[in-house]
Design a protein around this nucleic acid. Sequence first.
DNA 1: ATTATTGTATTAAGCACTTAATACACTTTG
DNA 2: CAAAGTGTATTAAGTGCTTAATACAATAAT
Lengths: 131, 131
Amino acid sequence: MNLHLTQHSGVPPYLQIISQIKQLIASGRLNVDQELLPIRVLAEKLLINPNTVARAYRELETAGWLYTKRGAGTFVAAGTTAFSAETCRKQIRERVCALLVEAAHMNISVAELIKLIREMGNDLGKGDKES
Amino acid sequence: MNLHLTQHSGVPPYLQIISQIKQLIASGRLNVDQELLPIRVLAEKLLINPNTVARAYRELETAGWLYTKRGAGTFVAAGTTAFSAETCRKQIRERVCALLVEAAHMNISVAELIKLIREMGNDLGKGDKES
DNA sequence: ATTATTGTATTAAGCACTTAATACACTTTG
DNA sequence: CAAAGTGTATTAAGTGCTTAATACAATAAT
């Protein structure tokens, strides 16, 4: 769990935590059922208020990335989303649409985009495991 | 220019305008050098304050989608971005990374993602022209 | 049981985002 | 040159987001 907050990016800390934990999970550097740092511990490491970490954990749980056992800790959930297949498709399609629009404006072809996705998609599964 | 604001989506009007105009341009339904509706006219159509439209136009200009001739109007810019190739790659890579993470969590494979991009990428160029 | 450790809930303060009101400046048109 | 039409700039109000302070509740460890 090596999280790192960027101070002057304009991105709220709780969102930075969320996206970084998502990446850790998706890349396999955090395993299913592995326990995360307790809210207060992570908060101390990051020099922020425990509530901020709590919010990140809570939203990750709502979206199906984590589950919590009160009094025991917070853990990585099995890889299933909390949303319906239909909702997922809709969300993904919206993201892809926006991506295509931006890529087109940057003179990045669909072919290049696909190449990039292939590369990065392969890398995702290759993260080093950590305790 | 058929823009449509969704009221209760939580997305600010100026952002809705921005993304819709980007799509219109990327899909070719708005042509290079074509004049957009004047700020006040679009504002009246959408029942919002002219400043809100002005903000959308301004940000689109900053990002290289539009150009303005003061006193004359606002127009679709040629298809080049306002950012360096390096900055573009970085932005695209970040978007792709986030997309891959979400897709993985939704049990959408890289192959499916690529298929989706191919389909939607083809559709993008096929928008009907409008006056 | 008791204590320590974990997450949860409530409230409020600060701050930034978003929109609106209004006045200004530049171009085009006649 | 005058008038109408265009984008621009400044300021302020409202609202929601974000974080923090603090107290609560459930579980684990002993």
